[in-house]
């Protein structure tokens, strides 16, 4: 244990916190990795699903709708287990972290799709008409006119999704992905001797780390939203 921590009394809460901090922060790094890749996967997938549901032809509409319904109608843990424990049946073996990223990402895609769809549909039909009247293709109209507006409108609900994903990433501990929650669990059950049975304190520290990260994230996203704000463009 780090000598720095010896300034705190043996057995005190702060000493415990200080001693286990390096490991927990390493776990937090993995949590970030998990969250960033999952939210990124969800962003790309969610956009495609939303566009499929708003502009797609019948088969595309039904496929994207079925996907969203399936994901939203089943627990995220079941989805992750399907990928981690289920896919090996088809000779696809993923390490825990990759399985968790894919599971959370595919899950987030469905929720993000609904936020994007709501934002796209809240933009008046006239915007598309005006773009097409200038001679833009449908793709250009979506890219230059619809999405820049929809993506601004979607920032507040999307911020919630990012925070949910960060918190839900803790379920990855159930497939032993070495993220923050998993690290906390390992620490709590590996403490021996007079320092054992300090689960309450360990998980309190874990909770505190999540809280700080969530607060910093929401402040940052608030700032981004204000930065990108355009007069007259808000959710009606």
């Amino acid at each position: 244990m780090t000598p720095l921590c010896q300034i705190f009394a043996d057995g005190s809460f702060l000493r415990l916190a200080c001693d286990i901090a390096p490991q927990l922060l390493q776990g937090l790094g993995t949590t970030f990795q998990l969250t960033i890749f999952a939210i990124g996967l969800g962003l790309g997938g969610g956009l495609l699903l939303a566009l499929g549901r708003v502009y797609g032809n019948k088969p595309i509409y039904w496929l994207s709708t079925a996907y969203v319904q399936f994901i939203r109608g089943t627990p995220v843990l079941v989805q992750i287990f399907l990928i981690y424990y289920g896919l090996p049946v088809f000779e696809i073996r993923l390490d825990p972290l990759t399985a968790a990223i894919i599971g959370l990402g595919l899950n987030s895609a469905a929720y993000q799709a609904e936020y994007f769809r709501g934002a796209i549909q809240s933009i008046s039909r006239g915007q598309m008409l005006a773009a097409r009247a200038l001679g833009m293709t449908q793709f250009q109209a979506i890219w230059y006119v619809i999405l820049p507006q929809a993506l601004r409108l979607v920032i507040p609900p999307w911020s919630n999704e990012l925070i949910y994903t960060l918190k839900y990433s803790s379920v990855a501990y159930l497939v032993a992905a070495p993220e923050l929650m998993y690290t906390g669990k390992i620490i709590a059950s590996s403490l021996r001797g007079p320092g054992a049975f300090r689960h309450f304190e360990v998980f309190l520290i874990v909770a505190f780390i999540y809280l700080v990260v969530v607060l910093v994230l929401s402040k940052t996203l608030d700032l981004v939203e204000r930065r990108l704000k355009i007069p007259g463009l808000e959710m009606r």
Binding site: G126, L129, R132, L134, G135, P148, Q149
Partner: peptide
């Protein structure tokens, strides 16, 4: 799309790109 470039259209409710 080529044709529409040659025809200007002005809408009743303007439809300026809001962003």
């Amino acid at each position: 799309n080529k044709i529409r470039q040659q025809i200007g259209f002005v809408f009743q409710d303007f439809n300026l790109f809001a962003h």
